[in-house]
């Protein structure tokens, strides 16, 4: 299966992605298809509550596959506007559509400059595929 690296996203070296909406007011955070593929069958997810704040580079949740437990890190500081409650109930669905229905959080960013440190799709792909 060829993995996707959508161009309109920015990526962390810890495999989370950030997508800025057109009005530049909301950032959607998820996990890259590469990371989900590497983790294998996802069985558990922990996310913050709506209204919580998240910090750039800090842990905001946990994702578990059958074998592995991994921290989720935020690409940006801000307030949690919504979280994907469907995914909390059926975490395995994250693999079906990581960049669409498999999103994790929508964040109201404090400062969009936080994203300046994130990678382009091309850079991220080069890093993870190591070519």
């Amino acid at each position: 299966m060829a993995l996707e690296y959508p161009d309109n996203l920015q990526y962390l070296d810890t495999h989370e992605y950030a997508r800025l909406d057109e009005d530049e007011e909301i950032v959607t955070v998820g996990l890259s298809a590469f990371a989900i593929d590497q983790l294998g069958d996802i069985v558990f997810l922990e996310l913050p509550e709506v209204g919580d704040t998240v910090e750039k580079g800090e842990k905001f949740g946990t994702i578990e596959s059958v074998k592995a437990v991994e921290d989720l890190k935020s690409p940006i500081s801000g307030e949690v506007l919504s979280r994907n409650d469907i995914l909390l109930g059926e975490p395995e669905q994250i693999a079906d559509d990581p960049y669409g229905d498999g999103w994790l959080l929508k964040i109201k960013p404090d400062d969009l400059e936080d994203l300046d440190d994130a990678m382009s799709a091309e850079d991220y792909r080069d890093q993870v595929e190591g070519m």
Binding site: L39, A68, G130
Partner: peptide, 9 residues
């Protein structure tokens, strides 16, 4: 970088 880091299994 490119690895998902070490995990217990």
């Amino acid at each position: 970088l490119p690895t998902l880091s070490l995990t217990r299994m």
